[in-house]
Design a protein around this nucleic acid. Structure first.
Lengths: 344, 344
DNA sequence: CGCTGTCATGATAGCGCTACCATTACTTCT
DNA sequence: AGAAGTAATGGTAGCGCTATCATGACAGCG
């Protein structure tokens, strides 16, 4: 009785795949009605909707999102581009984004640039090819090609982590101010010979901005602002090694301002192993406010940034924008908090 | 002179989007040849390839991967499903996968189940809808619907982290053996009253398997194997709190075997703050081999698992499979290493 | 009674790309 | 010389879905 769908020679269909047409046929409606029953449930009658959903269930239909996206040029994919997955900071932002976006039925396309702007451009190109609904990227710096591509894109773009003149939406904090803030704290504490230690500042240029703030503050007080730049990425190990380096290069150092908590904690733990007293022999400060810093003794003085909240807020703003609502705010300053521990 | 492409009333094209046809026209070849120039460069002549690439550049063409995937039913997307992004273990696996896959031109679709198998099923459904080239998921446990869906899928499936009878490919380690190994170490050290502390073992069932191994070993030696199960996820904070709990519930405890290093390090640092000597007053062991454990004093005794390598290996195996080569090995035991520190 | 409006459904025609088969021009072999 | 293979290119027809417009049914209204 039931006619098979046409199976002409040129067909490329994978015969095992259940299509929406089959669901529609089983439910006794047209394909387009079945499509509506699934994607715009309020546009079909209750009885139709139910019989379609039943057929979906019975046939084990899995919607082909690729075909749907092509037809509608909307994909419910959100591209997230981060410079590193080792740095837990970005993972926390991803986490905040992910939990909010997945709850709204968006999927995440993840890319890692390894702090390389050309790689970023490649990833952006690929992701635009997927008709992503929006793009999230870390930072405000991009190469020209990338900037051109994004400028004409027409979908929301969210730049996270730093604050400034973004391409579209922007959430972050003022890193220069954060560097200044910590420098100020160290000076207040009476330290005069302060070294800044960072890792690959040309790549992790936000840490470079913090150094800039730090340096300005020190110069303003008539102090030198020596810098030790490591060639490895930030880690406990690198922090431990940098302590020795600082003590060798700048023996009279009273305090070290580290670009992040991994380095700082590594140095602090190394100092303990060497029998140095923190902060009496050497004061140590970090940045990020990782839990680790609050569990070691002495507690690490650091600057806390709301990373997961930043991700959540970014996601909420994107969703608001994607659902056609007017943007709440184009720019969010999530701020930072100086957490004075016992290490300074 | 140059005719515009047909612009009939029903067209839904976004006029600003450059299509492959336009590139082909500019290069003076047919669309299909342009497609080949980009996707199968060895199937066109050098001169054709170059003129197509020039047109791509000149027009700023960005391939529509959605259309390409629909036509070819191949997507170069790899789905990765993890139970948590807080747990750095999974992030390291993602990292290993990502660096290998992105280098081969694959993109990552990321999903997080929050240790919920129903959520996993939903994610799998969605990801299958994207015609992913392969799927990576953590663990061997899935619900029935998910298992059915995957069984008929026809693309590579990689189950990571644990070892056992998988659906397709499998890379991981034997958690029961790992639990046994650590328990054995603690007994060897002379400890008799040993408590196991884990977090949400019904969710993090791999930690539950380690407890099982631990318990078996202790029972075999005629020892009790008390368990403290926390209701929060593993963290330094939870570890610190659990130490107090253990000392209250089991005052005579000599050693604590923690389900992971976050808990163990949290407890170790808390013990130090309370003036307890580790391991003399209380011995502490963890699992994972996080860098943190090797930087605190005393160094944490733990079991090291090669997480990033696991990700890399998984990715390599998938790529091998996707490029049509016969599978090197269906199952990889990446093993584990007991790292004896000073905390036991 | 026709006019307009709303609701539910359907027919048609793509979305932009590539699989499949054909065609042409050569080369190589017997 | 003719058969048979190979390399480069193109025409056609989809992939599975949805935007768009059209249709029919029915209600409300003067």
């Amino acid at each position: 009785m039931s006619k098979d769908l046409p199976t002409n020679a040129k067909s490329r269909r994978r015969p095992e795949q259940v299509t929406l047409s089959q669901v529609a046929q089983a439910a006794g409606v047209s394909p387009i009605t079945a499509s509506r029953a699934l994607n715009h449930p309020d546009k079909v009658s209750t009885s139709t909707r139910q019989s379609v959903l039943q057929s979906v269930e019975r046939l084990g239909y899995v919607p082909n999102l690729v075909a749907g996206s092509l037809a509608s040029s909307r994909s419910r994919l959100i591209a997230i581009i981060v410079p590193s997955l080792i740095n837990s900071v970005f993972v926390e932002i991803i986490k905040g984004l992910q939990e909010t976006l997945e709850a709204q039925g968006y999927q995440i396309l993840l890319g890692n640039t390894d702090y390389d702007l050309d790689r970023e451009y490649q990833l952006v190109r690929t992701f635009l090819g997927w008709s992503c609904s929006a793009l999230v990227t870390a930072g405000l710096r991009h190469n020209d090609a990338c900037r051109t591509l994004l400028a004409n894109w027409g979908h929301p773009i969210m730049e996270v982590m730093e604050l400034g003149k973004g391409m579209d939406l922007n959430i972050g904090l003022d890193h220069t101010a954060a560097g200044r803030c910590m420098a100020n704290h160290l000076i207040d504490r009476g330290y005069q010979r302060i070294v800044y230690v960072g890792a690959r500042l040309s790549h992790d240029y936000r840490a470079g901005m913090r150094y800039l703030g730090h340096k300005k503050m020190l110069k303003a007080k008539g102090l030198e602002a020596p810098l030790l730049e490591l060639n490895t990425l930030g880690s406990l190990q690198a922090g431990a090694e940098s302590l020795a380096q600082v003590l060798k290069d700048y023996p009279a150092t009273q305090a070290i301002h580290f670009a992040n908590d991994d380095l700082a904690a590594g140095a602090l733990l190394a100092a303990q192993r060497q029998g140095l007293s923190v902060p009496d022999d050497i004061a140590i400060a970090g940045f990020n406010g990782l839990p680790l810093g609050q569990h070691i003794t002495p507690k690490l003085t650091t600057i806390l940034s709301p990373r997961e909240a930043m991700g959540r807020l970014a996601a909420q703003e994107l969703i608001r924008r994607l659902s056609g609502k007017s943007v709440y705010r184009r720019q969010h300053d999530v701020g930072f908090t100086l957490q004075v521990g016992e290490s300074t």
